[in-house]
């Protein structure tokens, strides 16, 4: 039997290996202490990393919980293709939940506005999906460097029976001793990537060769150019008078619903180029996510309502 060399010769972990060890500990802890955990799978780069960490946590066994995708039906086609391929290819079980009633009643971002649309198709759908599966713990790929309200959120984020977060009444969280106690109907959202930064995520994807949705790579795409915003042409979005889609070399920095996720002009077609762009431009990835900016303290308000 041949043995792999220890991670490094001196006994000190690189920051990525230290983050990895911490995340694996968190994922195992949840599986050991909760009855019905689930992993929220958003198809994005953070979900891809979280999935790899889950594989590592239970290797050589399989991931012992299902993945749940909240499908607003406004996701990019390439995201859905990736969703239907990748989790299955690693033997993970994927469940999909959509707020069918809202869709049937015509919920869409153009007529409802992004805030209301998001409330119905994401937050409501998420809460219903979690309630339906009776899940008592849900992993999410959120990171603390993403947004200021997340900077203060615990790794185990307690949610009441309505899925709401109370920022003023969080449980103290010391060392790696997580409090998993919940009463019936209450739950915990767990964020194993809390201490990762966007750069850490990209670097880990690069080192580990983790598959990601091709939308992250630059390519000529049909876009609507509105001021500084690049809006992808999908799902027959209503055009402005005299508006014509243009071919633009661009990529997505983060993935959400196609209408609410702006693209950036970019020529980065490889991971090192994406990372180079990231370290030289230094614009925060959520800048182009409309939902973060539709009102003051936007993310904090959504989280209080039950958004993950």
């Amino acid at each position: 039997m041949s043995l792999a060399e220890p991670a490094i010769s001196v006994r000190s972990l690189t920051h990525l290996r230290a983050l990895e060890a911490e995340s694996i500990h968190i994922i195992r802890e949840v599986v050991a202490e909760f009855e019905r955990p689930v992993m929220l799978y958003s198809i994005g780069k953070d979900s891809s990393v979280m999935l790899r960490l889950a594989q590592k946590a239970f290797h050589p066994g399989k991931i012992p919980f299902p993945l749940l995708h909240i499908d607003t039906t406004y996701k990019f086609g390439e995201m859905i293709q990736f969703r239907d391929w990748y989790p299955a290819s690693i033997g993970a079980e994927l469940r999909v939940h959509t707020n069918r009633d809202a869709i049937a009643n015509g919920a869409n971002p153009f007529s409802l506005g992004t805030q209301k649309c998001c409330g119905l198709l994401k937050t409501r759908a998420l809460l219903d999906g979690l309630a339906q599966g009776n899940y008592d713990a849900a992993f999410g790929g959120a990171r603390r460097d993403e947004e200021k309200s997340r900077a203060k959120e615990r790794i185990y984020s307690f949610r009441d029976q309505l899925g709401q977060w109370d920022p003023k009444n969080q449980r103290p969280e010391l060392w790696n001793l997580y409090n998993a106690r919940v009463d019936k109907g209450e739950s915990i959202r767990v964020f194993p990537l809390s201490n990762w930064t966007e750069l850490d995520v990209w670097h880990y994807i690069y080192l580990e060769g983790i598959p990601i949705v091709p939308l992250y790579y630059a390519k000529e795409r049909e876009m609507l150019v509105r001021g500084n915003s690049l809006i992808p042409v999908e799902y027959n979005y209503p055009l402005l008078p005299d508006e014509q889609p243009e071919k633009v070399m661009c990529r997505m920095r983060s993935l959400g619903c196609s209408y609410c996720t702006g693209a950036i002009r970019s020529t980065a077609t490889t991971l090192p180029e994406i990372i180079e762009e990231l370290v030289s431009f230094r614009r925060s990835e959520r800048e182009l996510r409309i939902i973060d900016h539709d009102q003051e303290g936007s993310m904090e308000v959504k989280k209080r309502e039950g958004y993950f």
Binding site: M1, A4, P6, L13, H25, K56, A57
Partner: peptide
Amino acid sequence: DLSEAFAPMS
């Protein structure tokens, strides 16, 4: 398989 592992590895 590793020949050894040390704190804080998982």
